[in-house]
Simulated scan of single mutants.
Amino acid sequence: MTQEYIGTKQVTAWEQASPKKVKVCGIDCRKGDSACNNYCTGGADRAPAHPAEPGYAVKYPDGYISWSPKAIFEAAYLPLGHIGHLPAHQQRVIGEKAQLDDRLAKLDGFMGAPLFASLPEPEQKLLKLQADAMHVYRDVLAKRTEAF
């Protein structure tokens, strides 16, 4: 089953083991460079280094479909759920909220860490103000998405 994801762009993706053949990354891979990740675009088709490796088939807005290893994909994209039926502007609001939730969770975690306590008080105050503003922003986005 597909669902929407967001990174630097919104894509449609579904979990899929690595295909039988993948594009390898150019001349270095064709020469057998051990640093090649075997999943770059370009070059010639060949069998992946690890057949049936977990990953995602990824469909980009222009229709291009590629494959990405699971860890790489999940580090770059946040799941948005099954929102493909919604208008594009509503999908963007949901994506915006998902990104904000992720950033806010990281900031809240940082503010509970020893490093935060070691920062100068003026910087701590600014970070707290930033977190407060982000919480308000998140609440506004949550109210907007409730209407979808």
Rank of each mutant, 00 (worst) to 15 (best):
Q3R: 10
I6T: 12
A13E: 13
W14N: 12
E15M: 15
Q16K: 15
Q16R: 15
A17H: 12
K20D: 14
V22N: 12
C25N: 12
C25G: 08
K31Q: 12
G32I: 09
C36L: 05
N38H: 15
G43P: 14
A47R: 11
A47F: 06
P48H: 12
A52Y: 12
P54I: 07
Y56M: 03
Y64F: 14
Y64L: 15
I65E: 14
P69G: 10
F73K: 04
E74L: 05
A75S: 05
A75D: 03
A76G: 08
P79N: 02
P79H: 01
H82A: 10
G84T: 02
H85W: 07
Q90C: 04
V93M: 08
G95M: 00
G95C: 07
E96R: 06
K97I: 05
Q99R: 15
L100D: 02
L100Q: 05
G112S: 08
G112T: 09
A113F: 11
P114I: 05
A117M: 00
S118K: 04
E121V: 07
P122R: 02
E123G: 02
Q124A: 03
K125S: 09
L126S: 06
K128C: 01
L129F: 11
Q130N: 11
Q130F: 10
D132E: 14
A133C: 09
A133T: 05
H135W: 14
V136L: 06
V136S: 13
Y137L: 15
Y137T: 07
D139W: 13
A142P: 10
K143S: 07
R144E: 05
R144L: 00
T145I: 03
A147H: 01
